[in-house]
Amino acid sequence: MIEWRLRPEDVARIRFAFSPLMELVFSTVALRAPGEHSLHLPWVRATRPLVADLDLTEVFTLAPVHGWIADFISFTPSEPQPDIAGEFDRIRRTEAQQVITDIGDVAEVPEELADRIRADPEAATVRIVDTLQAYWDVALAQHWPSTLRLLEADVLWRSQRLAAGGLQALFDDLHETVTLDGDRLSVADPYDWSGELSGTGLTLVPLAMGWPWVRTMTGRLKPGYAGARYQPMIAYPVRGVATLWETTPPPPPDALAALIGRTRAGILITLAEPAATTALARRLRLTPGAISQHLSVLNASGLVSRTRVAGTVLYRRTTRGDALTE
């Protein structure tokens, strides 16, 4: 069990962030264990042939299917929306002793590989980043825009939960393993640790490729390394992850289609999770212009609302829209 005691200043510093690097690292887990990450099976089938020629041995070792992943390739994002190039640069700048300490946390690292990294940590980080970059280019780069829209929709949802019901509402449905009880926030975990956040705050990271598990960064000071502590983090499964690989939405009910038209009914059904115009156009196989016209009508009718998140306009069903789709 992981347990933090929250101070008032910690509550004020709870924030959301995205991490393409964490999506990348956890996708390597889904790639090897699709049975445990079944919603990503369409991606796994399409991606395995694309990465067949890459030597991912070192990355796979540092990111095992079960157990601790090396922190220097799965760190807490330092800004709300970092780009992958910036996160790769951060890996390259990892101090040598931190690399050595972090690989000591990973179970069953072959001694030969561990010795190779310890002998020249700087060269190891460059080598690892080069491999991660090659993997990103063929496995995830094309999917990042749609993944980012899903993450933005999740943050919009949870921000509204926080505004409506406070901290308790935010954590009530974050994940079944996460519990807030007074000033104690706990996450079910094989690793036992408890402590205070001590004013550092907590970063919440929605993850698509990490589904269905929760990952944590405790913020502990690491034995054997005197550098800065890791920023505390909970990485949790994003809402609506099942829609990420869908190519077409479910057909709208006949009665709803007869009432407002099949296309507008399809848009309402698809907006079970907030989405941008381009995402709706792709899923419904219509032009963005056509989608925009229908959204304008639905918005004027009070069936959908729109919110700007990180430069993107997201549409979502209103309570009235929800009632029509039930």
Rank of each mutant, 00 (worst) to 15 (best):
Y230T: 14
T243W: 11
G210H: 01
R285V: 12
Y225D: 00
L221H: 09
A281R: 12
P251F: 15
T287R: 07
M217A: 02
G210E: 01
G224K: 10
W245N: 11
L259I: 07
A228V: 05
W211G: 02
A255C: 08
R229W: 06
P288K: 12
L221F: 12
T218G: 07
R285L: 08
P252F: 03
P249K: 13
G227H: 06
G261K: 01
I267T: 06
P253Q: 10
T216H: 06
R220C: 13
R220E: 15
G224L: 11
G289V: 03
L207H: 04
G219L: 02
T287A: 14
T216S: 09
P223M: 11
A235K: 03
T287V: 10
D254Q: 09
L259M: 13
L202Q: 05
L221D: 13
A279F: 01
T248V: 08
G210F: 04
A275W: 00
P232N: 09
V214Y: 01
R220D: 00
P212I: 00
P252W: 02
E273H: 10
T218Q: 07
L286W: 10
A275P: 00
Y225A: 02
A226Y: 08
L286G: 12
V241F: 10
T248C: 06
S198V: 01
M217T: 13
T243N: 09
R239F: 01
T287N: 08
L268N: 03
R262K: 14
G266P: 00
T243Q: 10
W211F: 05
A258H: 13
A208H: 07
T263Y: 02
R283S: 12
V238Q: 10
Y225N: 03
G227V: 13
L256Y: 06
A276I: 07
G224Y: 00
P232S: 14
T287L: 08
G210P: 10
T263D: 15
S198A: 15
G289T: 11
V205G: 04
R220K: 14
G199Y: 05
G289C: 15
G224C: 07
P237E: 06
A226W: 05
L244K: 05
D254P: 04
E273R: 13
L204M: 04
T247C: 00
L202E: 03
A265S: 08
P237T: 00
V205C: 12
P251L: 13
R220V: 14
R229Y: 03
G227F: 05
D254V: 11
P253T: 15
T243P: 01
L284I: 12
K222G: 04
Y225E: 05
A275V: 08
A242W: 11
W211R: 04
T248W: 11
A226G: 13
I269S: 03
P249A: 12
Y236G: 00
A258M: 08
D254A: 15
P237N: 12
M209C: 13
L284C: 12
P288L: 08
G261M: 14
A258I: 01
I269L: 13
P237H: 10
P250Q: 10
R229G: 01
V205D: 04
V214S: 07
T247K: 14
P212V: 01
A272M: 02
L259G: 02
R264E: 08
P274I: 11
R262Y: 06
R282N: 08
W213Y: 12
G266R: 00
L280N: 03
T243L: 13
G266D: 06
V214L: 09
G289M: 15
